[in-house]
Design a binder for these strands. Sequence first.
DNA 1: ATACGACTTAAACCATGGTTTAAGTCAACA
DNA 2: TGTTGACTTAAACCATGGTTTAAGTCGTAT
Lengths: 126, 126
Amino acid sequence: MKYCSISEASAQFNIPESTLRYYEKKGLLPLIERDGAGRRLFSEDQMALLNTVICLKNTNMPIRGIKQYIDWVVEGDSTIGLRLEMMKNHKQTVLAEISLMTESLEGIDFKISRYTKQRTQTRSGE
Amino acid sequence: MKYCSISEASAQFNIPESTLRYYEKKGLLPLIERDGAGRRLFSEDQMALLNTVICLKNTNMPIRGIKQYIDWVVEGDSTIGLRLEMMKNHKQTVLAEISLMTESLEGIDFKISRYTKQRTQTRSGE
DNA sequence: ATACGACTTAAACCATGGTTTAAGTCAACA
DNA sequence: TGTTGACTTAAACCATGGTTTAAGTCGTAT
């Protein structure tokens, strides 16, 4: 099993070391081992878990939601039902967010096309 | 021309009155008129502008970005080129955000399908 | 005329998600 | 052996985006 230092984990996920320490403190990266000098060792399992944390973060799940999920992962198989329900709910939340952004983007596209015309024709408006 | 009170604007866009006041204070809603008692009057133009502000907010443009845009709107036609450039850039930012979310959603879908199987079969894993 | 509801302000407060700082430890290399 | 670089901690600090509070004003219905 290969281990990563915090700087390697930071580089691989392009996340500041300070953020990784913050995530550990918040309970998003539990059970991280240490070497003899107290330095963090990220196992492959931890790197996979970090990847999951980042997926959830990328989809705007709040820290305490991610923590709940991680707590359930640590708790074991008995929480699979809860995790499944959480992921299904989260997926719906994310799809709604994407829809809202996509819809709002139409308003932006409308401005782009209006401004594109106006720039050459010299007209007025908001 | 019909005018809206702050409570009507709040209801129409489903935004708290406190947030509308905050936006005005931040310069996102300039030139809002007042009645004899000092109460805000939202004209149709202001409601249209508020709609634009909300579009930009829905797509996660920071307040100071929205303010810059609004400042340019107020400044007039000479800023159409700047506004066009801003909206084009913003569109790319939004598309990138949507891509990241969509991509991260795949990791979530993977968990959903794994957990769905595991729930009936009793297996182990993260 | 008075009480109510809707509005006003400035300022304080809050949550979220980090980032930065200060002081210190340790391993390895010159 | 001593200095350098990577790491450690706790705590302070910061930005963003509001929300809440306190105190007061106005118009209208009773």
